[in-house]
Design a protein around this nucleic acid. Structure first.
Lengths: 195, 195
DNA sequence: CCACCGAGTCAACAGGTGTAGACTGAATCG
DNA sequence: CGATTCAGTCTACACCTGTTGACTCGGTGG
């Protein structure tokens, strides 16, 4: 007597979770286009039809997965802002969030993913820019965002030699001075340092 | 009487050029997966069959297009190396080579494109690393490569607000100090500056 | 001038895609 | 206990993909 007949609600939750996990993994590894509903279903040991039933469409499934989490508002002096942005990079380099990787990997070919990444970066950018009273604040904060993105890509998506297995603290240590110089460096280059 | 019957050789060259131009454009805009042979043929005002006949396969056509040009060997003191890498970024930010964009846009989903970009970056990295007598030279040069890539991506592929229309000199000026600090900064962070 | 070659066109194939719908059987509920 | 709901499965559709081969027809070399 199989006395433990798994309740239907729980059964459903389990399969949905398996599908989400498989989707996260496959989207992160192969990007949107190269990930098929059939592959997700297979990896989740289910049927493509079920994936459709639970998540409506491939698009919706991807949207459910590929979220880049926005961090809390930054504020303070430019130096503090630089330090905060650096810390946020540290988290990203430490955590390896499959969801963000899925979005980043797909952002060049999938419009929705590009929008997701762009908006997350712009949100960060606007807030940081507000604390900088220089005319080219947009450029500076955008640059820092780009550098952050480049670092994450180099480490996780390209696996560059020096970056792949470096301890996060070492990476952030090397970038600390960079971030600071960009945030409050003088606009005409480093030739005239006032500090 | 249309007295100028275009010679066959030239006719062929023209069509091949049209195909190559269309492929460059479409691969750069949409990436490998989302670019179809049919679309290339249509944009080149030809037939898919002809594309196959002239370039054998989609793969070969892409390989023909997506080449990231390696620049000449860098050498000298670390400071000079930093300056050279910065200049090379300047070129990249100025030129907007469709070919490289095609490779970069496809590198997350197309293995061959990833290899192309990786190898171009590693070649640069190895040479630059040779001039640095520190144990973490790989990390430093890899980081600079990642920052360069991030900048190009932010400018051309994401079109970030501050980066999209900033003059290249301004970008390189802001990054100059960063590159230098990474190349010859001290390994334990910027807290103890010897300069 | 005529046979040939090759640029260009067309239709089709085999495979893979997202998605829809009918069906089955067991958990659920009155 | 009987009726019903619903997780899970299977089949099929319509479409799009890279790629192939047969066909046309005008420039080309003998």
């Amino acid at each position: 007597m199989p006395a433990a007949p798994v309740p239907r609600a729980e059964q459903r939750r389990r399969t949905q979770d398996r599908i989400l996990a498989a989707a996260r993994k496959l989207f992160a590894e192969n990007g949107y286009d190269r990930t098929t509903i059939r592959a997700v279903a297979a990896a989740a040991k289910t049927d493509p039809g079920l994936v459709m039933r639970y998540f409506e469409s491939k698009e919706k499934l991807f949207a459910r997965i590929a979220v880049v989490d926005r961090h809390e508002p930054v504020d303070g002096t430019p130096e503090q802002v630089a330090e905060l942005l650096l810390a946020s990079l540290g988290e990203k380099v430490t955590a390896e969030p499959a969801a963000a990787l899925a979005a980043i990997r797909s952002m060049f070919t999938h419009p929705e993913a590009a929008k997701e990444v762009r908006e997350a970066m712009l949100a960060e950018q606007r807030q940081a820019a507000g604390t900088m009273p220089v005319p080219d604040a947009d450029l500076r904060t955008g640059l820092i965002g780009a550098l952050t993105l480049g670092t994450v890509i180099g480490r996780y998506l390209l696996g560059l030699d020096g970056l792949r297995d470096a301890p996060p603290e070492q990476i952030t240590a090397l970038l600390r001075e960079s971030f600071h110089s960009i945030v409050h460096g003088d606009p005409d280059g480093p030739s005239a340092r006032s500090e």
